[in-house]
Design a protein around this nucleic acid. Structure first.
Lengths: 136, 136
DNA sequence: GCTTGACCTCAAGTTAACTTTAACTTGTAT
DNA sequence: ATACAAGTTAAAGTTAACTTGAGGTCAAGC
């Protein structure tokens, strides 16, 4: 599979694929002349990466979580911790979603003055943002 | 309330508060000499902003969703659409969380080879990332 | 009335995750 | 053999969301 096909099938521009390879997130299996060749399973790897990115993990975190060459088993505790982190995040997103839905219906002149909205805010604020830089 | 107190109580550095004001996300109510003065409700506004940021909205989106000066009611449909977006995201995050939890327990030599993991991936991939640039 | 510490502005710097550009190479079709 | 479309590299550019730095201001305490 050449880079164009991977690009077409994954939806990612070739430049991104090269960038990911340079970063060590993915690997090409060889070259035909200058041109990279990719293995079929690259597509699943890329889906995984896309999902993780979308979930808010940085490329560096993803590298350490899924990289092929890392010590045979990725530290189970790390994975579990990541899952916990996500769980917290899901709770906040849910509060936000409900808040937005409410706001779309609410008659209060300003959302911040609506008690329902404020309650949601409070709930969401519970698990304070103690994360690193990238709190997305 | 001066900037130092807002900073202390919100946990945000003064530089961020100035930056937010410059961007139009928040407003100071006046000055004492050069120094900004903030109203008490600024703290709730900042919680709201923090939650929205954490939920993956960009500052520009937040500005248009919550800015004080925008047309009296923010477009209900927009709010609803944002809620839907979040709902999709919550589904993906849930898949990711379950995936990670599974990975932490799974005995398969490589997670990508584990059928449970692959199933999760497939589910998560359903609502494709058709978003703009900022898909976090 | 002078110092000082907390604030101010404006410009430039930083980081992540890419994208763009310029100049080069090569397998395939003619 | 030659052209050329599609690849390649290395370096510089881009955007969002801030942070840092240099140099200036001012209200309050001594």
């Amino acid at each position: 599979m050449d880079i164009a096909e991977v690009s077409r099938r994954s939806g990612l521009p070739a430049s991104t694929l090269r960038f990911y390879e340079e970063k060590g997130l993915i690997n090409s299996v060889g070259r035909r002349g200058l041109r990279r060749l990719f293995d079929g399973n690259i597509l699943e790897q890329l889906s995984m990466i896309a999902l993780a990115r979308y979930s808010g993990f940085s490329l560096d975190e993803i590298t350490s979580m899924f990289s092929i060459d890392s010590t045979i088993q990725i530290n189970r505790k790390t994975l579990f911790d990541k899952a916990e982190e996500l769980d917290q995040k899901i709770k906040k997103l849910t509060a936000m979603r409900d808040g937005l839905r409410h706001a779309a219906k609410c008659k209060a002149p300003r959302h911040l003055e609506c008690p329902t909205f404020q309650r949601l805010l409070k709930v969401a604020g519970k698990a304070q943002l103690k994360g690193k830089k990238n709190g997305k």
